[in-house]
Nucleic acid binder design. Structure first.
Lengths: 214, 214
DNA sequence: TAGATTGTTAATCGATTAACAATC
DNA sequence: TAGATTGTTAATCGATTAACAATC
């Protein structure tokens, strides 16, 4: 029903982890309620943005009181499906790969990295309590574990090759940390993560600051 | 002059590194000219977006011919100031820090990471040909080297503390890889890099794919 | 010349921001 | 009650997309 219900805009979606983090902090601090104004201040946003975003996740506040912290946390987790984490695998256990592998915060955001793969046998073994397998075992293990999400941390020149492997193993989503465009079938989702974008933004903001307009 | 000239929109700025990469590749392949259509196809964009963006960087093409590859590369590099890299330092030589330290692609984008710092003496030494100094030497070394950009890769709970150190050392831009909001004076620019945003986007796209609308 | 590809100008779309009545 | 804070509705802003004349 309501098949054509309006799709939530992406900027709002992308802000959800921020709200969740801040609400959790605020909860730890013992606050039972929080105003949009408080959250906005703490997150460098406008209060109206916070209210609109929370409304999207089904969170309504009370005038004079604000938003109930615990309920808001629960609502975001439900809305974003953070409570039923998906298992994921990572390919490319270099520094970046290991950094992601060791980051414990993803589980709270619905992502559970269960294993990594690397073509270098020397990298195989155990890192951050996560097993690293030879890439040759990729397809078999993914199917065994019923994996749907892959994290791509290999050098750019191997990006498409490993992507093909991921698609063949039945993965449905690829988090792409290489600066390459990946060719995938329509039913596979690719999320690019290109640090160069942020760097470009930073340097332009800096030159604007110092007067060297761009 | 033209102090109030229109500021280039950020989305365009963020796409510049992509164009530069693709143009460089195309150049290596021996192409002298390239059409907006070709670039769009290769980068998953619309041709009109490519043309508008390139125009912003001062690159004009010729009907029937397209854009001159070498000139376009030069124009982007000039527009983005990629040719005069800024020296930067990094704090927090964990896995993420080391990954950034080892990534050679930043120099082409105007960022030259010259050293890292870590509070753990065990981490100090040399990584990827870059020196890692004790954090206690931060301020002195930054001033000596006339550094203006800092990359923050420490655990979240140290984020503000190290930020204060950076500000005190005279840094003007901070690339923030922690999920914390940083308090800085007005004249300091902070660029957030929050992987959780991309992850949230990916998981929503995935659930949309599989019918579980969000 | 004919036609591919450009830059420009206008239209659309989507997100943010503003204004304000509702309400606890 | 008075006033802080909400949700809603409308206005603005900015980016993308569409249409098309210009031109090599």
């Amino acid at each position: 029903m309501s098949e054509k219900k309006r799709l939530t805009k992406l900027p709002t979606i992308r802000r959800m982890p921020m709200y969740l983090r801040m609400l959790t902090k605020v909860q730890k601090d013992g606050m039972l309620h929080v105003s949009s104004n408080y959250l906005a201040e703490a997150l460098d946003l406008e209060a109206i943005v916070v209210r609109k975003d929370l409304a999207v996740a089904g969170i309504l506040g009370k005038p004079r009181v604000g938003f109930e912290v615990t309920a808001a946390i629960a609502a975001i987790e439900k809305f974003m499906n953070f409570n039923s984490p998906s298992d994921a695998v990572l390919v490319g256990a270099g520094h970046l790969g290991q950094a992601l592998l060791g980051y414990t915060g993803f589980v709270k955001l619905g992502l559970n990295i269960v294993a990594a793969f690397d073509s270098d046998p020397g990298k195989c073994g155990q890192v951050h309590d996560k097993p690293i397998y030879p890439l040759s075992e990729f397809s078999e293990r993914c199917k065994d574990m019923n994996i749907h999400i892959g994290i791509l941390c290999v050098p750019g020149r191997f990006a498409q090759e490993v992507t093909d492997l991921m698609v063949a193993a039945g993965l449905k989503g690829i988090w792409n940390f290489t600066p390459r465009k990946l060719n995938v079938p329509d039913e596979v989702v690719v999320q690019r993560e290109d640090l160069a974008e942020g760097l470009a933004e930073l340097s332009v903001k800096l030159s604007r600051m110092s007067g060297t307009e761009v």
